[in-house]
Computed example of a mutant assay.
Amino acid sequence: MALLYQATVRPSKLELLSGWLPGRPWYSGPAGKMRHVASFRFDDPAGAVGMETILVRVGDGPVHQMPLTYREAPLPGADAWLLGTAEHSVLGMRWIYDGVGDPVYAAALAGAIINGTGQAEKLVQVDGRLVRREPDMSVLGGGAEAVVLPAVREIERVTEDDPTVIVTDTVELVVVRRLDVGVELADVVLRGAWPGQETPAPLASARIR
């Protein structure tokens, strides 16, 4: 379950991405104001880290996949993945990271792919009630709940390319950044569909080391 708040965030996620994404070595679109295409969330069992994967584009440029994590304090050793900080009107200061450098995101992604857990249900607080928000995209892993997934404790290295490779102590993950180039992934694959992309496209893959 992903609990969302009716809140303001300054600067907004799209403002941070508009300044940060064009400087990445794998980004292939024009510079400019990012617009939201679709998104999905994972759930942190500990309830400490927010996780949201946003699909964005500039104008009619290519769609890029950007996983984000939201933390209440800096993640030690992850300065290279920090987009910036933002003030959340309910939760206070948030440190916002590219999720590929965050072990909590790596663990959630591995579970979604290998155990087929998919995305978290979105619930919004409205007048003291929790209201379900319909997802604007669907994601589905290719694994099964019966597979025993070893715990992800740390990230050993990240190869920042397209696709981006995340090597953890137990699982190797591959995350596609640009989603319109027809990348084929091996191992167990997470696929997603969104308005304008009705045929599920590969988003990421995973294999147990």
Rank of each mutant, 00 (worst) to 15 (best):
G116F: 03
D162K: 10
A112K: 06
L109V: 14
G118F: 09
Q119P: 07
D161S: 07
R157S: 07
V167S: 04
V126K: 08
I113R: 02
D169S: 01
M137Q: 15
D162V: 02
A112E: 12
Q125C: 10
L123S: 13
G143C: 03
Q125G: 11
V158W: 11
A107P: 04
A107M: 14
N115G: 10
T164Q: 10
P163K: 04
V124C: 03
S138V: 15
G111D: 04
L109M: 09
V165N: 01
V171G: 02
E154D: 11
S138D: 12
D169V: 00
L130P: 00
V171Q: 01
G143R: 11
I114P: 04
I166G: 00
A108T: 04
T168F: 04
L173P: 01
T117V: 11
V158Y: 07
T168Q: 01
V139Y: 01
D162A: 15
V148R: 07
V152A: 08
V158C: 04
A151S: 15
E160D: 13
V167I: 07
P150I: 04
G142Q: 08
G143F: 06
V104W: 14
A107E: 13
D169M: 00
Q125E: 05
G118L: 13
A106E: 06
P135N: 11
E156L: 11
P163M: 04
A151F: 01
V176D: 00
G142S: 05
L149W: 08
V104F: 03
V171F: 05
T170S: 15
V131E: 13
T117K: 08
A108H: 00
V158A: 13
A120T: 13
G118W: 10
L130M: 11
T168E: 08
T164N: 07
A107C: 09
V167P: 01
T164K: 04
G111V: 08
E145Y: 09
A146R: 12
R132P: 03
A110G: 06
R153K: 08
V124F: 12
Q125H: 13
V165G: 00
G116K: 03
Y105N: 15
R132H: 15
V126S: 09
V126Q: 07
A146F: 01
Q125S: 12
L173C: 00
S138H: 15
P150C: 14
L109F: 02
A151G: 05
A110W: 12
G142R: 05
M137T: 07
A110Q: 12
A107H: 06
P163C: 03
D136A: 13
G118H: 09
I114A: 09
R153V: 03
G141Q: 06
G141A: 03
A151N: 06
V175Y: 02
P150L: 10
T164G: 12
L109K: 07
T170M: 10
A144C: 08
L130D: 10
R133N: 02
V124A: 12
A110P: 04
E145M: 07
V165W: 00
V147G: 01
R129W: 11
L173H: 01
A106K: 07
A120I: 05
E156K: 09
Q119S: 13
E145F: 14
P135D: 14
V131A: 06
